[in-house]
Amino acid sequence: MAQASLAVDGISKAFGETRAVRGLSLDAAPGEVIGLLGPNGAGKTTAIRILTTIYAPDSGSFAVDGIPYTRPSAIRQRIGVLPESAGYPLHQSGEEFVQYFARLFGQSRKSARETAKTLLAEVGLAERAASPISMYSRGMRQRLGVARALVNRPRVLFLDEPTLGLDPAGQRQILALISEAATERGATVILSTHFLDEVEEVCSRVIILNRGEVIAEGPVADIKRRAAPRTARVRVPEENHESALSALKRAPGVGDAQAVNGGRGLISATLDGSDTNAPIRALLEAGIPILFFELEGGKLSDAFLALTGEAGA
């Protein structure tokens, strides 16, 4: 197995009485995109700031590309960061901005110029490279931030809410850049976001934080499975309402069935196991036509809400 590009072992951080992060552990391989999820105040930004050496952990340890956290300067050479609320010097052009950061990472003037040119083209800003940042839209600034985060060909890329406030087209561009960074550059990407559909689209694994603690971790499919559908909604013709109810109640794999809001024809069936087809099979075997069928649950958002709700309860 390839060496973990990010290895985190039980890091914790408290601010006074508030324990912002508690015992976070994870291992990430090169090219992996990991989603960091959690409601507001869950500790996502603090976790990222610890891993990007802005804050020192109170306990625990981590290593980036094998470099221990006790060598922050060496770690910074290997990471790229787009902070949650990244500001930009509005008077500079995009090109000057990226060049400046490339120079801060030790590149010569010539190399920095080439890096800026290449990265701005990659993020689709080549034509606006000479324009002052004050003329950039929010989406363009976020893409510029991604370009800046890539100037040192980072082993690990930390993106804190990179699509916040972007329109769907802007979101799409950023997600494409994230995927590219992972697949083509082999960078590990830690993506903190509120948008669960983004996570489903680009992340191979998720970590869900709540009140500083990891409440779930694993591949997206596994997390979704935790919120496996427990209920099915079925609509049958009104005249078949009673027979459908009794067929469902008798069916194996269906726990209970009852009319929804006293409505004729609309039935909610509780599933006993993982066989989501059990209600359909029961109705078809009873010769009852199905007008509508929907499973409730089974999405990452359901899992997220269930997990954070349970943890918060």
Binding site: T52, T53, I54, P83, A86, G87, L104, F105
Partner: peptide, 14 residues
């Protein structure tokens, strides 16, 4: 205040 400090602090410049 301009939120540009964090980007500077995550560079390897001491």
């Amino acid at each position: 205040e301009r939120e540009t400090l964090e980007s500077l602090l995550v560079t390897p410049v001491p």
